[in-house]
């Protein structure tokens, strides 16, 4: 289902969605009109992504669009919101009042360029950042210290990604098949060693969130419970994030 439709469903259920808009399937015209539509319908948060290549999906033969990339998408959306114009220069009667986000993968290469690229995303308009799933906490901490050094944590809200592991198979699949995902062998070994993988998966996820909370500059987490969405409330409660703490 499209992110637009699912965001709307979330909204109707009383949740505040983050709508994902990828450049793979839509050109700049479609993305801008979707943004206006989303804003008009009350969707407030938009995550700008290039999008996973269609080769990883179930319709590999499709032609991709990639008219623009995620950074250019941010640039266009920010222009629409702050300058009240579409990219072609025409004035908008009403600017889309949206909160713009981007993704970043602290575990991708070239390592020394990742933080610089995060800076580009923030310059282009990103106000919040959702990172790729964090399994390797040391590498994530190193990345965060570079982020702090450049002062980027003060310019955008960084939300670390966490994934509760449901099974050994899922963990192995993510380690080998999912682009940009880095899972240390120790994580796989820990999963392998236990009998009740699911409760261990939750435990590890909660631990991860606790570790992440102590890292300076991180403003939150986003839980990617892939094909295991029903576990989210349990994780949120166990980490003391629900009911919402007063900060």
């Amino acid at each position: 289902m499209s992110s637009f439709a699912s965001s709307l469903l979330c909204l109707q259920e009383g949740a505040e969605p983050v709508m994902q808009m990828t450049c793979r399937d839509r050109n700049r015209i479609a993305l801008q009109s979707d943004l206006l539509g989303a804003a008009a319908l009350g969707i407030k948060n938009v995550l700008c992504l290039s999008g996973d290549h269609q080769r990883f999906g179930n319709q590999k033969e499709a032609k991709n669009v990639y008219d623009i990339d995620s950074i250019q998408e941010l640039q266009i959306f920010r222009t629409m919101r702050d300058e009240k114009t579409v990219w072609g220069g025409d004035k908008l009667e009403q600017a889309p009042n949206v909160f713009l986000g981007a993704t970043e993968n602290p575990f991708a290469d070239p390592l020394e360029f990742r933080v610089m690229r995060l800076g580009k995303k923030i310059t282009a308009g990103a106000e919040f950042i959702q990172t790729q799933a964090v399994f390797d906490i040391e590498r994530f901490e190193r990345w965060m210290s570079d982020v702090r050094e450049r002062g980027l944590d003060r310019k955008a809200h960084i939300l670390a990604g966490v994934v509760p592991l449901k099974s050994l198979g899922a963990a192995k699949y993510m380690k080998t098949k999912v682009p940009g995902m880095v899972i240390p062998d120790s994580t796989i070994e820990r999963i392998r060693a236990v009998g009740d993988v699911k409760s261990e998966g939750v435990k590890m996820c909660v631990e991860k969130i606790e570790q992440i909370k102590s890292i300076k500059g991180v403003h939150g987490v986003h839980i990617m419970a892939i094909a295991w969405e029903e576990i989210v409330p349990e994780i949120v409660q166990k980490t003391g994030l629900y009911p919402r703490p007063n900060v």
């Binding site: 793979r24 991709n64 990639y66 993968n105």
Partner: peptide
């Protein structure tokens, strides 16, 4: 593969 002008995407590995 994505004809990006502001790459690399998050899938660049080694």
């Amino acid at each position: 593969a994505k004809s990006m002008l502001n790459g690399p995407c998050g899938g660049s590995q080694n």
